[in-house]
Amino acid sequence: MPEELYEIEANIPANPIEEYLRMDRMPHIWCPGCGIGTTVNCFVRALQTSGLDLDKVAVVSGIGCTGRVAGYMNLDSFHTTHGRAIPFATGLKLANPELKVVVYSGDGDLTAIGGNHFIHAARRNMDITVILINNMIYGMTGGQVAPTTPVGATASTTPHGNFEETFNLPFLAESCGAVYVARWTAHHVRHLTKSIKEALAKKGFSFIEILAPCPTLYSRRNKLGDGLDQMEFYRDHSQIKNGADTKSVAIDFQGDIVVGKFVDKERPTYLEAMNNHYQKKYGDRYVPSEEMRKVFHA
């Protein structure tokens, strides 16, 4: 390589989000046009302004393309088994309530194989933030149908078109008791960043669904163009409706997408409920763990 090229490289200013990433793991595995990286950028920018002590933030992922997020974050990070990020995060949070525990995983991971954990964590109002990247397909394994694939779309395991009802994830999360529910797309970077920041500040089970393009498997198979075409689609077909009834936000194949913050309410979190219950029932006889005492009995 000619000498001057080295010079040029050296003069490129560091990307401001680099310190939040494990740069020694770059390049990442995501395809050109994939939306996951954009969401990670938003996540980092939310962290930057969140005021959180980054030593106390942990990211937990399952398996799949989005499951790789944990491995790229320069935080305590756990790349667990398929579908089980939420129960792992549950154990982590209960062991040390001082931690801000973020589950970052895909639609198939969190709502198919991990669906049972998703609904129960929301029901319990477990103190975790769940960021779900919905690319409407199983990417890592080669484009199979997911519970989030719209009716009419094709996938490698629905080569004749999908005819199964699609999950309306904000409705699911709200029904199960999530206290914060929002949906954005990879196009809505400013809204999304703000939303992640809000979710991180929220006590209890906060949930953000992010629609993101999978140009390699979803868009190409469905003749929807590349990543940029998908982003343009998000731009042209998204309607911001904060406070929308989550019943009404189901996703159709290439239909309009309702985005926004749908739910932002309060109810006792799992940890609050547990601590209050024992405190009320047993007073000083209740012995919370040291970590629990710091957070709830200071």
Partner: peptide, 18 residues
């Protein structure tokens, strides 16, 4: 937990929580 799968991974989260 909601099943044994969840139980067997929740404990591992707790171990990494100390």
């Amino acid at each position: 937990m909601e099943d044994e799968i969840a139980s067997s991974i929740a404990i591992q989260g707790a171990v990494w929580g100390g």
